[in-house]
Design a protein around this nucleic acid. Structure first.
Length: 253
DNA sequence: GGCCAGGAGGCCT
DNA sequence: AGGCCTCATGGC
């Protein structure tokens, strides 16, 4: 599918904390690869780079999904018209697990800071100032005090439990959404919301609909008589548009 | 501008 | 139902 991607919304709406933008250049370390592009070069890059194409979920029919959701409901129609091109990134499950443990009771800005300090402290430097997200074995060098010193607070022991149980991620692929969620919730600091983010952003479960305080607010204000199944089979994409659109309209960044 | 409370994209006990 | 680390944020 070659179609327009809303790069800003996709990379900075809170799915991933890996990206930086400077002078029109978007940069991140994906796995152990430094990836850098500008808005103009992305489409051609996706054609020749299968790995990056998979990361951007480039084979999925987004125009079709956008059309479906636009016809489903006027709120979505408006938000999709405004933010068209939002993608659900297919990220590394381990990175998503830890990132979203960090996200609880926290703001995007602070999450980015914690994420960066984890990389700088426990990751590998691929280029000057550019670090990988630490693998479980690397993060295993940490103890609770060290993680608290980085500012993780009460999330520090949760991350350590995630390190201990990281092999559990290998079992998720074979489970359906509901069982996968329950399995993920065996990790400390992972409840229903964090589990749904891991399934959506780390395992490509496109119908999962993370329900955080904002989404609960949106559901009760805009869809008082509906539940997330209303958006099926595009729950995840609907959630992203609603979250992004509603917060831009009524909330803060 | 600086200071200070309450809140932040949940989860645990 | 309350507490939790920490700090960016908004209200004085």
């Amino acid at each position: 599918m070659s179609c327009e991607i809303n790069i800003e919304a996709t990379l900075f709406c809170g799915q991933s904390f890996a990206w930086t933008e400077e002078g029109g250049q978007y940069t991140a370390v994906l796995g152990d690869r430094v990836v850098c592009f500008d808005a103009q070069s992305l489409p051609s890059l996706l054609k020749e780079d299968k790995e990056l194409a998979a990361y951007f979920d480039n084979d999925y029919d987004y125009p079709g999904a956008e059309k479906y959701l636009s016809l489903l409901d006027p709120h979505l129609e408006r938000y999709i018209a405004e933010y068209r091109g939002l993608r659900i990134l297919r990220q590394d499950p381990w990175e998503v697990l830890v990132s979203f443990i960090l996200s609880q009771n926290n703001s995007i800005k602070r999450i980015r800071g914690l994420y960066r300090r984890l990389n700088e402290t426990y990751g590998s430097e691929m280029a000057p100032g550019l670090y990988t997200f630490p693998r479980p074995e690397q993060l295993a060098r940490a103890d609770e005090d060290a993680l608290r010193a980085l500012g993780l607070g009460f999330r520090a022991p949760y991350v350590l439990d995630a390190v201990d149980q990281h092999r559990l991620l290998e079992t998720i692929e074979n489970l359906d959404d509901e069982l996968g969620s329950l399995q993920l919730q065996r990790i400390a600091g992972v409840g229903p919301k964090v589990a749904s983010c891991i399934l959506l952003f780390g395992f490509g479960r496109r119908d999962v609909f993370p329900l955080d305080v904002w989404m609960k607010r949106i559901m009760s204000n805009l869809y008082p008589d509906k539940d997330p199944s209303f958006f099926s089979p595009h729950g995840g994409l609907a959630q992203q548009y609603l979250f992004h659109g509603y917060r831009d309209e009524y909330g803060r960044r």
